[in-house]
Simulated scan of single mutants.
Amino acid sequence: MAFETLNAKRMLPDWNRSALAWIGFYGAILVAWLAVFAMARQNPAADMPAGFWESLCIAAGQASFGPLVAMWALMALAMMLPTFVPALRCFLDLSQAGATTALGAVALVCGYVVVWLAAASIGAGAQYGLSRAGLVGINGASLSGWLTAALLLGAGAYQFSPVKEACLAKCRMPLSFFMERWAPGSPRALRMGLELGILCLGCCWALMTLGFIGGTMNLLWMGGATLFMTLEKLPDIGRWLTRPVGFGLIAAGACVALQTLVTP
């Protein structure tokens, strides 16, 4: 009886650390989504000046590049952190077995986030350039039928690409990924987070460009894309989604191209 009590006391701190890690992770997701919702509604938060949120929502041609990067960064965190749950769960399971520490989990998430913040800068640059060229409007939505068609066709074709297939294979099997690259220490965890971020970017970048069709801050698109990208990474579900969605996107792109061609 005394031995069982001692075991329970030893296990409690590990459980607490894991619970705190999940609370912090989901808290970050919640904050990102609340910020995105505030931007989409142009409803300033109580502790932020109205001009801050307004500057994130006006046209890229009128806003400075910095606020546009901030908008894309929040959008990337809100959409991509939920897709990282399986990998983080696997890593924390290994930490409970004594293979790593809570600090390693923080380093893993930081590495993943760094990749997507870099990708957000690229997305902001693309929106800025397209807005200056008159191809997207104030909400980041395409004003050109040919641009819309190209985005749909490109994203659809990428669903069948070997690069996407290779990245998805790694993302769907996080335990195999960790076993192949495992080494103790936070620096190694940071590197694995960076590698997972690159793999995730390889899976999802083409789908993220579809935000230029309905508007980069369109909450319906963001929610639907987040759900799809999360499900696509699940082995039992994702393998039934990737190719059908690819066919659907290609068909939609062809229809838009035909409509643009015949419309005066």
Rank of each mutant, 00 (worst) to 15 (best):
L108Q: 08
P184W: 05
A97R: 15
M179L: 10
L135C: 01
A169D: 14
L143K: 08
A118S: 14
L135Q: 03
G185H: 04
C167I: 02
L175S: 11
P162C: 09
Q127G: 13
G104R: 01
L117I: 02
G123F: 13
L199G: 00
G197M: 06
V136K: 02
G145L: 03
Q159S: 11
R188M: 10
R191Y: 13
G134C: 10
V113P: 13
S176R: 11
L143V: 09
F160T: 06
G197C: 04
G140M: 05
I122Q: 00
L92Q: 01
G154M: 00
L190D: 12
G137W: 14
T148D: 15
F177G: 01
G104S: 14
V136F: 10
R181Y: 10
R172M: 13
S121R: 01
A107S: 08
E165R: 14
R191E: 15
L168E: 03
Q96K: 13
L152N: 06
L153A: 06
A150L: 10
V106I: 05
G140N: 08
L151F: 14
A107E: 09
R132N: 07
L168I: 06
A155M: 05
Y158S: 12
R188Y: 15
G156A: 08
L199V: 06
I122Y: 14
A141F: 12
G111D: 03
L190P: 09
A107G: 06
G129W: 02
V136N: 05
A166Q: 12
L94A: 15
S121Q: 09
G156F: 06
C171H: 00
Q159L: 00
A133Q: 11
F160K: 06
F177E: 01
L190N: 02
L153G: 09
P162Q: 03
G185E: 08
A120E: 08
C171D: 05
A99W: 13
L94R: 15
V114H: 01
L190F: 15
M192K: 10
T148S: 12
V106E: 03
A141Q: 11
G129C: 11
A118L: 14
V163M: 06
G104K: 00
I198M: 13
P162G: 03
L152K: 12
A183L: 05
V106T: 12
S121W: 12
A119V: 07
L175A: 09
A133H: 05
A150K: 02
V115K: 04
N139M: 08
I122G: 02
G125L: 01
L153Q: 10
E165W: 11
R188I: 11
G137S: 10
A107W: 01
S144Q: 09
G134A: 02
G125T: 08
